[in-house]
């Protein structure tokens, strides 16, 4: 799965945002693979690490907007874990910036596409730089 970008999408916000992007035919990078989770708070550090072990180029965790998480603290937990994962990757001399957390509301398909494309492009450029 070399080069894929994995996005863990919360079913209350990011997943519907992605669906809405689809309904609006907003194109984004084909390398994106969405894994549906009930809440960004479900995403464990090991899920992100294993994605990188499998060759993912980048990992996104997308949860509800700040203060609007369906599960109250799920998005803040997710952010903490993503930050932890960034440290773990840096420690392993990989690029911690390959994993990112974003808050998104279900009615923000453009934001979804922008986040996805930005990460994919950033990673592509950094690969070229290497």
């Amino acid at each position: 799965m070399k080069g894929r970008v994995i996005a863990f999408c919360c079913e209350h916000s990011a997943y519907p945002a992605a669906d809405l992007a689809g309904r609006l035919r907003l194109h984004y990078s084909e390398s994106l693979r969405i894994i549906r989770v009930p809440c960004a708070g479900r995403v464990d550090v090991i899920h992100m690490l294993k994605a990188f072990e499998k060759g993912a180029r980048a990992v996104l965790v997308l949860g509800c907007e700040d203060g609007a998480c369906h599960h109250i603290t799920g998005n803040t937990r997710a952010r903490e874990r993503v930050e932890q994962c960034q440290v773990l990757l840096d420690e392993a001399r990989l690029d911690g910036r390959s994993v990112a957390m974003h808050n998104i509301s279900p009615n923000a398909p453009q934001k979804f596409v922008r986040i996805a494309d930005e990460l994919v492009n950033a990673k592509e450029q950094s690969r070229e730089a290497i």
Binding site: D44, V45, I46, L49, K50, F52, E53, L88, L89, E91, A92, R93, L94
Partner: peptide, 18 residues
């Protein structure tokens, strides 16, 4: 068990990259 998983994965990543 959680930390075991994380450390093992991190080691594999670090060594694999090297």
């Amino acid at each position: 068990e959680k930390e075991v998983g994380i450390l093992a994965s991190q080691l594999r990543l670090a060594r694999g990259a090297a």
